[in-house]
Each structure stands twice: as C-alpha cells, then as structure tokens.
Nucleic acid binder design. Structure first.
Lengths: 155, 155
DNA sequence: ATAATATTAGTCAACATTAGTCAAGAAACT
DNA sequence: AGTTTCTTGACTAATGTTGACTAATATTAT
C-alpha cells in the first residue's frame, strides 16, 4: 500500500471509472501526461491488467481523434461462459492469466471463494514448477481446462 | 533467549508487528538493511519461521513497488489429519492413491462433493498426462500437497 | 484525387528495480 | 566428530519504466 508502483495506480484509476460505467475511453497521451509517464506505459498497463482473462476487451484507433477504449465484457451473459474461458486459457497459460480466469469464474458466481482457493492451489507455483516455464504453462492450461469441463456438468 | 541469532531477532521483529495486525508488508532490501544482513536472509527467516504449519501465508511481488507480505491465517482443527495425508502423498502418487486421498478428505468432512470433483479434475488423466508416468506422479503429488496445505486454514 | 504532413497509438528492446534460489562455508549444537 | 542451523553472496527470475522507432488514420495542400 505504501509504495505502489505507477502501473498499479493507473490500473486503479481506470478500474475506478469502470466501476461506475461499462467502458472507459482515453487518449493515451493525455493519461500518460496526467500520471507523468511515457505513453507506452499505458500500453503496458493495459496489456498486463486489462486482458480478456480479466474480462476486458480493448479497442483503439490511431490518428487524429484517436483513442483507447476499454470495455468490460459480461462473460456471464454469454451462454457458453465456460467455453469462452476454455478459449481464453488456450493450450498454455501464465499463472497471472490463470488467476484471472479463476477470478472470472468467481465473479460470475460459478464457484465460491473456497473453490477458488482450491483451484488456485492446484495451479500455484508450489504445485506447478517443473523448471521449464513453457511446460508449466501447458500443465496449468490442462488442469484449468479439466476443471472447467467438470464445472460445465456440475453447475 | 540468551544467545539469539539474527534470524531469531528478525523473526521476533516481524511477529511483534503481527501481534497487533493481521499482516505485515515489507520491502526485503529495507529489512535486510535495517538488520544488516544480506537480502536472502529474509527469505531464510520466512522459509523457516513463517510456514503454513505455523499459520502464516506469504505472498510477494518483484519489480518496482515489490513487496513481501506475511499474513496470519486461522488454522483449522484438522491439522494432524492433513499432515498424515501430506505424508501419505509423499513426493509422488498414482491416480488411484490420489483418489483415495480425496476420498479420505471427503469422508472426514474436510471437503464436500463438489470440491472433491474439482480436485479430482485437477489430478485426472485429462489434466496430468505428460507421457511420463513418473513425472505425472510427481506433479500429482505436488498439486495435492498444495491443495492440502490450503485446506489447513480458513479462507 | 493524390500527396504531403500532422496526429494519434503500437511494438520492442534496453534498462531499472525489486524478490527467489541455491550452494558453499561458518557457527552452534548434539 | 558429526549434524543441523545460520549466514553469505553469486546468479536467476519477475515486474516495471523508458524511449526510439513503426504503423495507422486524419487533415491539409496541390
């Protein structure tokens, strides 16, 4: 809390706006200037914190009147919620993005907190740690997909 | 008490803070500097004195604004039982025996049916299937132990 | 229309800033 | 003496920050 990095602060700022509305539209240079960072840092924040696994879709346009728009997507409205998560997982996934998938399941009400923690434990660094990052990412994806497929039948 | 080593002193310092609050968040380099030790000694202290068996969960982040956070967690009263299962799992376990571990948890009331199925999905042949039986058994063991450790405390 | 210029955002690699791992050696206990 | 625990530092990994260069789109000039 004391020594937050600027990326976290920008993330919070954007998510605060998104708490009240369905989307944010920014001009990259403006936000960069507001937080006193280089413009490309905005791309970094978006790339690391507003992924599809997190439940966001990002669109942008260059040139005069250009913008970056971040939209919250309601995965729950989608009939095949689980399918969309399976797609999001793909055949390999980082811990960070795996966490986002679990969070999406939780926020959609598909699993409760206790179940979130169990799944998290299963794809943790403690659990998945072969020494080869790519192998780990594939394993993580397989485990998540196996769990997602079970949830399809149970819920 | 008489001849405390520096690891004990750092442990006391952190536990004193934890006496008043639910968690401590530190910057590793800062604490290392404060006690005049190398940074990795902080990892040693944490690894030997703030384990899940002691009732602590540790999270961290690297990079700018990085931190180590130690949280006190409320341990449940099934600790001996969990310990015995951790021992039973060991460093590798077959699917069959893994299933037995899950069944034990269920029968002991530590998890419900839905949770059983989630864990089962995580150690399934679908999820764990590297093509090397021994590797699979090690992975399965790691995943189960990670989950067992999460079941030690309230979340 | 087309070309030139201006105005936006995107990519990528170098660098910075944190924490993690591991193994060797020292110190403290049997 | 042998064993365990502690201490240290070299090396690794993850995350964040910066800026040079590129790409797309809009506007203006011809």
């Amino acid at each position: 809390m004391e020594n937050q990095n600027i990326s976290d602060i920008i993330e919070s700022y954007l998510k605060q706006i998104l708490a009240d509305s369905q989307q944010v539209e920014i001009r990259r240079a403006e936000i960069a200037n507001q937080f006193n960072v280089v413009p490309s840092q905005i791309n970094y924040v978006i790339k690391t914190r507003f992924t599809i696994q997190d439940g966001y879709v990002v669109e942008s346009k260059r040139g005069g009147g250009g913008y970056i728009r971040i939209e919250k997507v309601k995965l729950l409205d989608n009939l095949d919620f689980i399918d969309s998560l399976v797609t999001a997982v793909g055949d390999q996934i980082t811990r960070h993005d795996g966490l986002a998938v679990i969070r999406s399941l939780f926020e959609a009400g598909a699993i409760n907190r206790r179940e979130s923690n169990i799944i998290l434990a299963a794809i943790d660094k403690t659990a998945i740690n072969t020494g080869n990052v790519e192998v780990d990412e594939r394993l993580r994806a397989q485990i998540l997909i196996s769990i997602l497929n079970h949830l399809r039948y149970e819920s």
